[in-house]
């Protein structure tokens, strides 16, 4: 493909390369979690292709494995993915002049990492040629690695005995996402409140407690922030190294 031979595409691919190995365990766990939730291998693979967002996939699989109302699964996953609207707004001015045949696939490939790498590049060099190819250079290797890692997890997950407690990798991977998201008092308040409310409300049917916990946590964060305005408001990041 001529597209992948373009120097802007190679530059993007070179920038994303160090992030790819970190995605592999996450992708595999997402695959294992989908199998654990009782999905067929084809549905589990469809999940990573159709949704293509690590934390949302892990959360959806986790919720599907316990008795959860379908609407709660869908809304929780979409709340987690709301951050994409911020990336979408931030990167949109750089995609001007492209028709929908470019913009739609590029939107589908939008991830934390592709966004972060591309926007950094565009900010450093606003007049850079072929911005969309740089973006695709970061986004396409992410997609291949993610879907490949999920497929490996699906393959592996079907054959691992329950005594290995491999399901424990799922809360551990949430932990890996949680720790870097706590960056100040307000985010700490959000985490502590969300965690405690979730434990207390665990008995609610259909996992509605998760919703209550998320809403309480966000409320607590906003409250602490309002009481104690931080000097800087850092850009939202959801993942430490590689997911989504």
């Amino acid at each position: 493909m001529a597209l992948t031979a373009h120097p802007a595409f190679s530059a993007g691919a070179k920038a994303v390369a160090p992030l790819l190995p970190g995605m592999i365990p996450f992708g595999m766990i997402a695959g294992i979690a989908a199998i654990d939730a009782g999905l067929s291998p084809s549905a589990a693979l469809a999940m990573s292709v159709v949704i293509f967002a690590g934390s949302a996939q892990l959360v959806a699989a986790q919720l599907m494995s316990v008795d959860t109302l379908s609407l709660v699964v869908i809304l929780t996953a979409l709340v987690i993915n709301l951050r994409f609207t911020m990336y979408s707004a931030s990167i949109a001015p750089h995609f001007q002049g492209l028709n929908w045949r470019w913009r739609w696939p590029m939107a589908y490939l939008l991830t934390d990492q592709a966004y972060a790498l591309s926007i950094t590049r565009y900010t450093l060099d606003p007049q850079a040629p072929a911005k969309h190819l740089y973006y695709l250079g970061t986004a396409l290797p992410m997609w291949l690695t993610w879907v490949g890692a999920c497929a490996a997890g699906i393959f592996l997950g079907a054959g691992v005995p329950a005594s290995w407690s491999l399901d424990f990798t799922i809360p551990l991977s949430f932990l890996v996402l949680l720790i870097p998201s706590i960056i100040d008092r307000a985010t700490l308040a959000a985490a502590v409140t969300g965690g405690i409310v979730a434990v207390a409300a665990a008995g609610l049917p259909y996992n509605l407690g998760l919703f209550l916990a998320a809403a309480s946590g966000i409320g607590a964060g906003l409250l602490v922030e309002a009481l104690q305005p931080p000097k800087t408001v850092p850009m939202l990041t959801n993942s430490p190294t590689g997911e989504d």
């Binding site: 709301l82 407690g209 309480s216």
Partner: peptide, 30 residues
Amino acid sequence: IQLLGRASPPAYLQRALRFVPAAVMAALVL
């Protein structure tokens, strides 16, 4: 991306979104 940068998310949403990862992940882990 479809709107080509003619609009951006409302400020209150941006403020609330900052707390989504911490609140949701803690609610899943604990």
